[in-house]
Nucleic acid binder design. Structure first.
Lengths: 351, 351
DNA sequence: ATCACGTGTGGGAGCGCTCCCACACTACCT
DNA sequence: AGGTAGTGTGGGAGCGCTCCCACACGTGAT
């Protein structure tokens, strides 16, 4: 057996040319049918479709990508270690929305982790090779160079987070400020007076905005700011425990805690229990994200729902639009390129 | 700093040809350097590498794929709804092993969900288009047509599970039978006499093998089979609760439970607690997977550790070898194409 | 009749690579 | 001297598409 015969012409998949021959038309016509161009007569279209079906023709992605200079793929970039991706429901919700919105598109989704230096390196290489038509960037940190890199490479990209994170990039955000306000206002309305806040990781934009919402709600209600009631967390359960311990020590009289995430609230709850505080009788507790944890906690946790799945959908919509705009290199419409989605307070037994 | 030098040309990225011109060599030589061929003199190689660096050359993936008829990508196919993927540590461990082993390869990993009919459809289309060089198939169910499809399309593939699942495909499995035996033998050695088993989903091959191991261990120890001590579960917490309730009703005198997964064990634990049974005093409990849950449970859960991460590594190794073998269309070495990795019982306070 | 258009259609010219053959050029034999 | 390897190198011939120009047809206005 000739070793170089592996390039087998006869045994391979059918090509455009073969379909064209079968249907008795030219290559261009088949291409038009495949790509849904309207400039084909009904009879011709039917003949081509028949030939495609008979031969089981499937377009060669590589050839298309080379000729058309596009890949029909987009990347969901997670600049976090994989462990966090699995630990936080945020990402799975986001992925669900993205997947759903992408379901009826031809686009293929690539999941890319870039949690360490090596991953960053690979990603940069990857983007430089233009292996994707667009990028979805979630969980961007304060000093992250990724947005700049994307802008510089002129790769369409949508970021989840506030516009300030990367002015040049389209963004989709949820109303972190308003969500935090609604939580605090709810606690105030229930008569709580000493309300603590365990923040998220402050190098994540949204976490900072929640702190702002917390502060402003208290200030607008006439409370004076007590910085000892604010303790940094990091979105993890362990961080929640640590912060709660610190808070109890500094302000044993607190009667409510607004946590930066449900997971954090779970950690805080443990410490409160161990300290003999009843929830909500002694201390009211509110989380953020309204994830599955919130529903299953004992008692069920009041939480600020972010429309994460919708955010995923919105991000895809904007990204696809931006990719489509890239073809005719005009009309760089700057209108409504920054979306903010509303949050909702889901009240349960913990408050 | 010269990275912008050649950009003006046709507005695009530098090509092989441009690198060749810059280095004063031919296209073929540059290609050889890029692909690490040894048939290049040191001087020439250095010149080419300099030109590559100066121009910031990055190979065009599409062109390479078209010319070489390969994609440098492999797919990790998860034939489950996305929710399960996130809920079960099994998948994240597997992904970690796969990712680690792939880190120093040029291969890119695609994560593909095919949990519903629509996903299946997309996947089939995807495979038919040969968009990947190989496939990793995890969590295959009994009547799944995917292995056959892969064999038919002649796409290199490695399956996680026993060889019987798809004789034609390379497989990597952990010793489910032995793992279950070791768990039961441990319980027997501790003097337990009425040992129940909550199974995994029985349409998953591994779960069935664990039942076999459970039965054989009891039989070999001279116990007679009591089918009322076996209750089907589905790997979920809820399933564990349901099964435990059923078992307690049928066999209130049981003194040990071997659960099909740690998550299942967590569910069983809740029901045991509510029924007033102390662990391990009244009832010993053993899980499977040795996931994070096991370590953090109260009391810490004895569990059968599967080397999932290693399985991921092994799968990648075998797959890459198979892809490499595909080039010279000879030597379809059938040797050691079915690997079985050992399990280990991790004993903690619950037994 | 001529011209002007719009509508379908065929096929040439690439896209940027890899593969492989041909061709130096150098050893080291007979 | 001629022969025979082996080594490094250049470049033609594609891979299977998309893009776009050319052209064959209508059809209606001049």
């Amino acid at each position: 057996m000739a070793s170089h015969g592996a390039r087998g012409r006869s045994g391979g998949r059918p090509t455009l040319e073969e379909v064209a021959a079968r249907a008795g038309v030219g290559r261009g016509t088949v291409s038009r049918v495949i790509n849904g161009s309207p400039r084909v007569s009904d009879a011709t279209r039917a003949a081509v479709e028949a030939a495609v079906a008979e031969l089981g023709y499937v377009p060669n992605t590589a050839a298309r990508a080379l000729a058309a200079n596009r890949t029909d793929a987009i990347a969901l970039v997670v600049p976090e270690p994989e462990a966090r991706f699995f630990a936080e429901p945020y990402f799975s919700d986001m992925l669900r929305g993205v997947g759903a919105e992408l379901a009826d598109s031809e686009m293929q989704l690539l999941l890319t982790f870039a949690g360490n230096a090596r991953g960053r390196q690979r990603l940069a290489q990857y983007l430089a090779a233009h292996r994707v038509d667009g990028v979805l960037l979630v969980s961007v940190h304060a000093d992250d160079p990724l947005p700049d890199l994307l802008a510089q490479l002129e790769i369409p990209a949508v970021i989840s987070g506030p516009r300030s994170a990367a002015e040049a990039l389209t963004s989709v955000d949820s109303d972190n400020y308003g969500g935090a306000r609604s939580a605090v206002e709810h606690l105030l309305a229930r008569g709580r007076t000493e309300i603590a806040h365990i923040t998220g990781r402050l190098d994540v934009y949204g976490a900072q905005r929640r702190v702002d919402g917390y502060r402003d709600a208290l200030r607008d209600a006439g409370h004076e700011t007590d910085e000892l009631l604010v303790e940094p967390g990091d979105f993890t359960e362990e961080g929640g425990r640590r912060a709660m311990s610190a808070l109890l020590e500094r302000r044993p009289g607190l009667d409510a805690v607004f946590a930066g995430s449900d997971v954090t609230a779970a950690g805080a709850r443990q410490v409160l229990r161990e300290a003999g505080r009843r929830i909500p009788d002694d201390v009211a507790l509110i989380g953020y994200d309204d994830s599955a944890i919130a529903r299953h906690m004992d008692p069920p946790l009041t939480s600020v729902r972010q429309p994460i799945e919708e955010m995923g959908r919105a991000m895809i919509d904007l990204l696809l639009a931006e990719i489509a705009d890239r073809r005719p290199a005009a009309s760089r419409g700057l209108e409504r390129r920054h979306a903010v989605l509303a949050t909702e307070l889901v009240v349960r037994a913990s408050s």
